[in-house]
Nucleic acid binder design. Structure first.
Length: 922
RNA sequence: GGGCGGUUAGCUCAGUGGGAGAGCACUUCCUUGACAUGGAAGGGGUCACAGGUUCAAAUCCUGUACCGCCCACCA
């Protein structure tokens, strides 16, 4: 084995072998365990969030596969309608072309080409990350057989009366020229103005003042509303005002929606351009006056001077014209929430258009019950409330999009505008007896991407056919996703799953936090803080990283800032850390926190961890290869028994970590055991046996056997999080360890319960460790090199101390760096020495010029102060009579004992301080 | 306006009722035959604040402050 762990070559080689041998496919035996991947968008490459999520899913998958489950991790990618269309359109624009020029068919062809590129990059990234998905089952949401399922669902929903088409007010994106669902709207608070406009009374003098944030919509006003109980305006209800600039009259109506305290208490009502006004218009039978075109300019229903003006130009002109007429009472600054498209960032317009909707309440009710009943469990449970809140006030879902990239709506129109919903044009004709000579035209619109996403758990498994995969792996075991798409995706999958399969799509939803940069900032191209996960795996030079981060920026003026920040953060570029280090650091990050700060130092930490493990394995192999390892006749030492007990402890921590989706717990358990127990202690203890001429062959055999078996079990426990290094080392140790199997991937996950408990090993080992730590503490504080062997005397040794001492002398001399200690007789006086305490046992290191009395006094002082503080706390606790009365007896007893120990310790330390002080003063 | 998170060592974070923890960073020592991507030792925290419950609170309850997120039709 090489001296340092070199991941690059190992990873690609091992993954190729796994894939070639078909290890990712379900085993077909055992209980089913399945996860469907949240399909990444084919908009580019995977980002850190994907890599994080894939690590979690892969760890869960590998863990269950090793535990004997029939395990499927279903891969796939998403066409991501708007997002992908925008990416390709931007590419076209950069090349001086436009989508419109190209035409629908050619454009869609271009997007398919891009899909091949992006999908290929994504698959490649997933392979480098070690994802054990079943590639044979890979699907894309727009694959023809997947589209057929989408059509099937649409038609069935339509036939059940749950899909309807109609002219409704929707969120309209005038840049993308499509409708959006409520969820795709981000409400941002922005600074604006509140214009107080005077609307003259139609008859007689005077005017009403209405307050508005959008004066340009006045052209679409259908009424002015006041609160029915508002004394100021009560008498005017039923009368009329004249709409300035347009020669129309508006009724004054009463509606309790109006807040008399806001503005003037009079509201202009524009039913075709405001959601509230729309509702009010419906209540009062007001006309819907649409004044805008699809690109948000004023249309021909407004007076000539304003026609064709963009909404904001129209606003300026209308305000100027009203001002000229003296019809503006005042303008005040006002904060308002502006709706913007989540993709385009365009200011959206409520606009009347023909759209398709899902009547959602009938679907929502069973989906709410499924969570209430516990059929679907959110982890952490706090997200349940978020789900309920949205589900209880859910509104109909606008599913049609005026885009080109997506699932075409299966509806056909005749010349009269009648439409027929069917699985195909032919079926539409058959069902409605339409002559082939009558032209039919399919709806131009496509479906919201989330429509097909909602079907994902069952569509990927074969629905509507009752395929073996559907029967076996549906409902899936767990959905792993971020909280940002609970509404977009999780809720809709539960609704659709229940509707079309009668079952929930997954039993658990594990909601993880969102990956942010080291400063807690969201990672985004425009911030210039994105990292390609593979750049951490393979490393990247500063130059390459700079060019990656600064090309294709939406706002080129950001370039300088991005470059500066990048140079500051990665002056040397990024080193190659390997996949396992990245995965382990992701796991360590997977706490229940919402925001997860990704930090390079964590990756470095786990790179070092991998190297540590690699070298521990080197040491083990060095000592076992070509040697007898048959445990028959082996003698197992205290250290052997102890490390086995600690191994069991680690395994049970891992088990509960996985059960609770706490991969941070799993990663920490592995780290602590590997580094601080196996390497720091056990390997060093093993050396004391293996390098000793005094140790018996049976003892050496026991140590070798324990070394190789502990390592082998550790590797299996590590495999779900660090698949590559565990496989690589396992391949080298499996023969010596005497385990069968071709791959660690399909080896059994180690079981804590199969390791018998050993209640005596840990206390004795604790004594050994404390002895060693006591001596090391003196050496460390006195700057004495560890390997300088010291003379040590023991005072006050009890029978237990003597027993432990005799049994473990070889450990003590080696790990503490001492000569075999001499036990002082009860009456024998000790030379002046530095002292370490182990219960009542005093470990003495004679000072004789080695240790300065002043330094030892300082050390003693520190210990003494600590002990005294502890003692006084404990004394006040125990002196409280209520404590003994109410606390559990075992707590009281423990504290009593601790009190005695502290008193002994303080007595010893004080006596020692006195002795050293005397010496110093001589 | 409603709701949900967070506040623990310089930094990033674990820790849900009984002696304050990890990693990194920092200080000192160590070219020991697995590993300097290493080893040994050490310093550093009134657990945001104020009340309350309890024999006992970082942990449970109430409130306050600050930070963040989600939802929401006040023009």
């Amino acid at each position: 084995m090489d001296k340092a762990f070199a991941p690059a070559e190992i990873e690609t080689r091992i993954y190729a072998q796994w894939e070639a041998k078909g290890y990712f496919a379900p085993s077909g035996t055992g209980p089913a365990y399945s996860i469907v991947i949240p399909p990444p968008n084919v908009t580019g490459t995977l980002h850190m969030g994907h890599a994080f999520q894939d690590t979690i899913m892969d760890a869960l998958t590998r863990y269950h596969r090793m535990r004997g489950f029939d395990t499927l991790w279903q891969p796939g990618t998403d066409h991501a309608g708007i997002a992908t269309q925008m990416v390709v359109e931007r590419q076209l624009n950069a090349a001086g072309q436009s989508r419109i020029e190209l035409g629908r068919e050619a454009f869609v062809e271009r997007v398919w080409q891009w899909k091949e590129t992006s999908g290929g990059m994504i698959a490649q990234q997933m392979r480098r990350l070690g994802a054990s998905v079943d590639w044979q089952r890979d699907v894309f949401t727009l694959d023809p057989h997947m589209s057929a399922k989408v059509t099937e669902v649409f038609v069935r929903l339509y036939e059940d009366g749950l899909i309807y088409r109609g002219k409704r007010l929707v969120n309209w994106d005038p840049i993308l020229k499509t409708a959006l669902s409520d969820l795709e709207v981000v409400a941002e608070e922005e600074k604006g103005s509140l214009w107080h406009l005077r609307y003259p009374m139609a008859e007689g003098p005077g005017y009403l003042v209405v307050a508005t944030t959008r004066p340009e919509t006045m052209m679409g006003d259908a009424a002015v509303a006041v609160h029915p109980d508002d004394e100021r305006y009560r008498h005017l209800i039923g009368r009329k005002v004249r709409l300035p600039l347009a020669m129309r009259e508006l009724p004054i109506i009463a509606d309790a929606y109006v807040d008399p305290a806001f503005g003037s208490g009079c509201v202009k009502i524009t039913p075709a351009h405001d959601f509230n006004d729309y509702d009010m218009g419906q209540r009062h039978g007001l006309p819907l006056i649409n004044i805008m075109t699809l690109d948000a300019a004023l249309n021909d229903s407004v007076p000539a001077p304003y026609r064709g003006l963009d909404r904001f130009a129209a606003r300026a002109k209308i305000v100027a014209d009203l001002d000229a007429l003296g019809l503006i009472e005042r303008i005040e600054p006002h904060k308002l929430t502006v709706p913007r498209g989540d993709r385009s960032n365009a200011i959206l317009e409520p606009l009347l258009t023909d759209q398709w909707f899902i009547d959602i309440k009938p679907l929502a009710a069973p989906a709410i019950r499924a969570v209430e009943s516990g059929e679907v469990r959110f982890v952490p449970a706090t997200w349940t409330g978020v789900y309920y809140e949205w589900m209880h006030k859910i509104r109909d879902w606008c599913i049609s999009r005026q885009l080109w990239w997506g699932h075409r709506i299966p509806a056909w129109y005749d010349a009269e505008g009648r439409f027929y919903v069917a699985r195909s044009e032919a079926q539409a004709r058959r069902a409605h007896g339409i002559d082939p000579a009558v032209p039919l035209r399919q709806d131009d619109d496509v479906l919201d991407t989330w429509f097909s996403s909602a079907l994902w758990p069952f569509s990927t498994l074969g629905w509507p056919e009752r395929t073996p995969a559907l029967e076996t792996y549906y409902p899936t075991s767990v959905l792993v996703t971020g909280f940002d798409i609970i509404f977009f995706w999780v809720a809709r999958m539960i609704m659709m799953g229940l509707k079309f399969t009668g079952k929930v799509p997954f039993h658990a939803v594990y909601i993880h936090g969102l990956i942010r940069d080291q400063d807690g900032q969201k990672m985004s191209k425009s911030k210039g803080n994105v990292i390609d996960p593979l750049d951490i795996v393979d490393g990247i030079s500063l130059e390459a990283l700079l060019s990656k981060r600064t090309t294709g920026l939406m706002q080129p003026q950001m370039k300088a800032g991005v470059e500066k920040a990048t140079r500051k953060q990665f002056p040397q570029g990024i080193a190659a850390y390997g996949t396992d280090a990245l995965r382990l650091s992701f796991a360590r990050l997977a706490t229940q926190s919402r925001d997860l700060r990704f930090d390079m130092t964590k990756v470095e930490e786990y790179r070092n961890f991998c190297n540590k493990l690699w070298n521990a394995a080197r040491y083990v192999l060095m000592n076992v290869e070509g040697r007898e390892l048959d445990p028959a006749g082996a003698e197992f030492s205290l250290a052997d028994r102890w490390i086995r007990a600690r191994l069991a402890g680690m395994l049970s921590r891992i088990e509960s970590g996985f059960a609770e989706y706490r991969l941070d717990v799993v990663a920490n358990a592995l780290y602590d055991f590997t580094w601080h127990e196996f390497c720091d202690w056990y390997v060093e203890l093993a050396k004391a046996v293996l390098q000793s001429d005094a140790a018996t062959p049976a003892a050496k055999l026991g140590t070798r056997h324990t070394l190789i078996h502990t390592l082998e079990i550790l590797l299996r426990a590590l495999h779900p999080l660090a698949p590559f290094i565990s496989e690589e080392i396992w391949q080298r140790v499996r023969v010596s360890a005497g385990v069968s199997g071709d791959t660690i991937m399909r080896a059994a996950f180690p079981d804590a319960a199969s390791i018998p408990s050993d209640p005596l090993a840990e206390p004795e080992m604790r004594w050994v460790m404390d002895f060693i730590l006591g001596v090391r503490q003196i050496k460390g504080e006195m700057d004495i090199p560890l390997n300088r062997r010291l003379e040590v005397l023991l005072q006050n040794a009890g029978p237990r101390d003597l027993e432990f001492l005799n049994r473990n002398l070889h450990y003590l001399t080696r790990l503490a760096g001492i000569e075999p200690p001499r036990v002082l007789a009860p009456a024998e006086s000790a030379p002046i020495a530095a002292v370490a305490l182990l219960g009542s046992l005093e470990i003495l290191v004679p000072m004789k010029g080695l240790i300065e009395p002043a330094a030892e006094l300082e050390r003693l002082g520190k210990r003494l102060r600590k002990a005294e503080i502890d003692l006084s706390k404990l004394e006040s606790k125990l002196s409280n009579s209520q404590f003994a009365l109410n606390a559990p007896p075992e707590i009281v007893a423990k504290d009593q004992q601790r009190l005695e120990e502290l008193r002994t310790e303080i007595g010893q330390l004080s006596a020692q301080t006195e002795r050293v002080t005397k010496l110093k003063n001589q």
